[in-house]
Design a protein around this nucleic acid. Structure first.
Lengths: 142, 142
DNA sequence: ATGTATGCAAAACATTTGCACCTGG
DNA sequence: CCAGGTGCAAATGTTTTGCATACAT
């Protein structure tokens, strides 16, 4: 039961938190902004304030339940942390996001960090390109 | 003469633009936020509005004269585009930034994009870690 | 002269916070 | 019951814009 995940994070299992987690789960590989989550909550009939969405997402991030990404364009987006690290390719036309992992790159990153005198803690790699989706350029968002 | 670069960008050679370019040149490998540039201009006795700094930086970016990066933490930072592409390692403690290029990673990125059905246009790679600088943790900013 | 640029103040956003009121355990 | 959670509105910080004035060519 996912409520346990919330409890494990040291947080009370409240309505807003459960619903936000559900929204994120149902989003699958999509990446939602705080505003997106808020809209979806309202669409589902939940009466949750935007401030709470921000607070909960921040807490979930601190607890390692979700990851926050910055991509191009004003706002941050969130996705459920499914355990396996991955990077992203974002289509600059339609916004589609595809995830990937590449051990060659991961390994080189560690080598570079060490070589430059850093103890690697984290990294952010995002590729930007034009995808070949038929729907692309119709303005469809991931 | 650098004024030519401004002219080549299709922009008039005005006082503010020349001074902002000078600030960026003297910053070397440092990464400045719009606010940083604004402060430095005032320190140098220039009377330039913050709005102009934002407008000019945006125009310079569109012209390929500067690059904008998003790193962690609210604001964007800018650096002069010296022609050679590079990525960054940022110290999460003191904020120091080191640039690097790695052909192995560059090459893998192209392969991954192709394989995922994207035409690679750009990418953003930032490593985060703790540096071994003696000054680190004194809060020195790059 | 004349189309651009600039400065200033106001607007627009994304995100955070203060505070009185609720609620889960 | 009571610490912690929530909603709302107001505050923040960053970046953008409207508009009247000033400037480069």
């Amino acid at each position: 039961m996912e409520n346990q995940e919330i409890r494990n994070a040291g947080l009370k299992v409240t309505g807003p938190r459960v619903k936000i987690l559900e929204i994120l789960e149902s989003a699958g590989e999509k990446h939602l902004s705080a505003e997106d989550v808020y809209r979806l909550l309202l669409d589902n009939g939940a009466e949750i304030g935007l401030a709470t969405v921000y607070r909960v997402l921040t807490q979930f991030e601190a607890a390692g339940l979700v990851e926050r990404h910055h991509f191009e364009g004003g706002s941050s987006v969130y996705e459920l942390n499914k355990g396996e690290h991955h990077d992203h390719i974002v289509c600059v036309i339609c916004g589609k996001v595809v995830e990937f992992v590449d051990q060659t790159i991961e390994k080189r990153q560690r080598q570079i960090a060490t070589q430059k005198g850093f103890e690697l803690a984290d990294h952010s790699l995002t590729l930007y390109g034009r995808c070949t989706d038929p729907d692309c350029s119709l303005g469809k968002k991931d």
